[in-house]
Design a binder for these strands. Structure first.
Lengths: 155, 155
DNA sequence: ACCTAATTGATACACATTATCAGTGTTGAT
DNA sequence: ATCAACACTGATAATGTGTATCAATTAGGT
């Protein structure tokens, strides 16, 4: 674990604990353990991956509690569920402004980005008479690191 | 059923049969029945909804065949699977150009639309070093008909 | 009519997620 | 510190969606 990971993790951990506090939820040892694991995930993860890592820390923690925590974190907006090509992915997401996700199809890493003109979507649907409520934009591509490995260096 | 529905349905039915023909698939009674039901759906539907309607026409047709047909139709691009807020939706979709879907959160009706500048998404992710492969944009809002009923006429 | 391979329905299976429920632990009031 | 209320827990069952299997049926060219 690099110092960057640690710093990011502790910030994330703090934010998540505050979010649970804000909902009047209790501090428990299983929850603390699960939060630490979530904070240590460096990329989107499946519920199964999370459950396995949690079990590595404390085998007594059950699947149900993992899903319950994911639901709580999604409710406070700190975790989002993305539609991956091979099922659902959960991702820790601290950016509070409107944003979108790009998932690397090679390594699975996810980054966030914003559109220059996000209202273009609202305008497009208004043209056919709809009033937009919300939208989900999910992008798949190849990240900078994986491009180096997979793309010909000649061009 | 209005004449519009009928006309749309028969066009859709025809396109779907041609698509199956093009793949060298056989004409069978269960398939014909299922295609007619799909063509008659006026909006996105869940696999379960389709299964129920098909069973209403012919109770002998099994769940597996419904899923198999959906897979065939998705393979030929005439049916798409959308990520709804409450699970997956299938929608009959005859538009062949690149497009997106808006789903009305009141009545469930779906329409298609295009962005003025679709490459804006590719540019946005290129700015952070990614090479885009594909993207999914799913919009939720209120359709013109439902706006009339739900929005105050005063404004 | 006949043959072969596609298609079928029933069934079992796999997987992610949610519901249930009795026991346990946290927390705030005292 | 004690206590009682109730949030939280893990185990388990249940749900829901989609896929795999397989023997029996059937389409469609010959």
């Amino acid at each position: 674990m690099t110092s960057e990971d640690t710093a990011f993790g502790s910030v994330a951990l703090d934010l998540m604990e505050r979010a649970l506090d804000a909902q009047g939820l209790r501090h428990t040892l299983p929850r603390r353990t699960m939060l630490e694991v979530v904070a240590g995930m460096g990329r989107p993860f499946t519920a199964t991956e999370l459950t396995e890592r949690v079990a590595g820390r404390d085998p007594h923690i059950g699947r149900a509690s993992v899903f319950r925590l994911l639901q709580l974190l999604r409710g406070s907006g700190l975790v989002e569920r993305l539609h991956g090509p091979d099922g659902e992915l959960y991702t820790l997401c601290l950016a509070r402004e409107h944003h979108h996700h790009v998932t690397c199809t090679v390594c699975g890493q996810t980054a966030t980005f914003s559109l220059e003109d996000d209202r273009a979507v609202a305008r497009a649907v208004e043209r056919i008479g709809f009033r937009m409520e919300h939208h989900v934009l999910q992008v798949f591509g190849v990240c900078p690191a994986c491009r180096e490995h997979t793309e010909e260096p000649s061009r």
